[in-house]
């Protein structure tokens, strides 16, 4: 433990401009990797329930935020009893867009032809702020991810992971080059690999932890500035903590792996004790 702490401090002290820049870029790419990973869990898919497009026989009815639960129930029953209505579904305010905080009804007319008249009739009802027919998007614009966005995100995930591993490998190479005389002395003195490896792995873990913590803080700031005021964004605190912890674990795993990659350089020829 004593020599581990000593070596860790020495390694951190051996970080120079080149290795420092490489490690900073590696942390940035790991942060991007984790952010892309978190986005998969945090943002809904467009084209799902929330991001569905209205078909011609459907009407979305935006309710006034001032309506009581009983008034919504009455309105629901009234609409359901209409002869030109096939089906009614209610969505709570938290499920819909930030502009329609009173909740909404998703109404399916008996036919596409009847939908327009139905919308006009519903618009005239007390407690209804508006009604739309047809192909308007009823999802969470700007927050949901389309299929193409998800494919792009997946590509970003792979590219940032590769960039992270590449940059950490170059960073460790630069760092160990600075530290080569010390490594040679350790080898000559009979210091085992078991002593030399852990400080490098811990250095990788530190990078992973740093990127994860920045992401965690970033998510909190995002929730505070956007998610909290936006009922459509499912960025609740438990979800945030869940995704955040998962990202931290993934960050530590990636960091540890990069440390192992870096440690594998110790067997390279420049560190032979008797070159």
């Amino acid at each position: 433990m004593n020599e581990f702490l000593f070596l860790e401090r020495e390694l951190l002290g051996a970080i120079r401009t080149r290795s420092g820049i490489l490690f900073s870029l590696a942390i940035l790419s790991l942060f991007l990797f984790l952010a892309a990973f978190a986005s998969f869990y945090l943002f809904p898919t467009a084209g799902g329930t929330q991001g569905a497009m209205l078909t011609a026989d459907r009407v979305v009815v935006y309710l006034s935020p001032r309506l009581s639960t009983a008034a919504i129930d009455d309105l629901f029953a009234t609409i359901q009893e209409r002869s030109d209505v096939r089906e009614v579904r209610f969505e709570f305010a938290t499920q819909v867009t930030p502009t329609s905080t009173g909740g909404r009804f998703l109404v399916r007319a008996t036919s596409a032809a009847a939908a327009r008249g139905l919308a006009a009739a519903l618009r005239a009802m007390s407690g209804v702020d508006g009604a739309e027919v047809g192909t308007a998007a009823i999802g969470t614009p700007g927050l949901a991810l389309s299929r193409n966005a998800r494919i792009g995100l997946l590509c970003g995930l792979l590219v940032s992971a590769c960039a992270f591993l590449f940059l950490t490998r170059r960073g460790f190479r630069a760092l160990l080059h600075t530290f080569r005389n010390e490594i040679r002395l350790m080898r000559l003195s009979g210091v085992s690999e078991r002593t030399m490896y852990p400080p490098l792995v811990v250095l990788g873990l530190l990078m992973g932890a740093l990127a994860s913590v920045v992401l965690f803080v970033g998510l909190y700031v995002f929730q505070a500035t956007t998610g909290g005021a936006n009922p459509a964004l499912p960025l609740t605190t438990p979800r945030l903590i869940g995704v955040g912890l998962l990202s931290v674990l993934l960050g530590l795993l990636m960091g540890g792996l990069s440390g192992l990659f870096g440690a594998s350089y110790l067997t390279a020829r420049p560190f032979d004790p008797l070159p």
């Binding site: 004593n2 020599e3 002395l185 210091v191 002593t195």
Partner: peptide
């Protein structure tokens, strides 16, 4: 000191 510390001396 470096040699002695890596060999485990406090």
């Amino acid at each position: 000191l470096f040699k002695l510390r890596v060999l485990g001396e406090v």
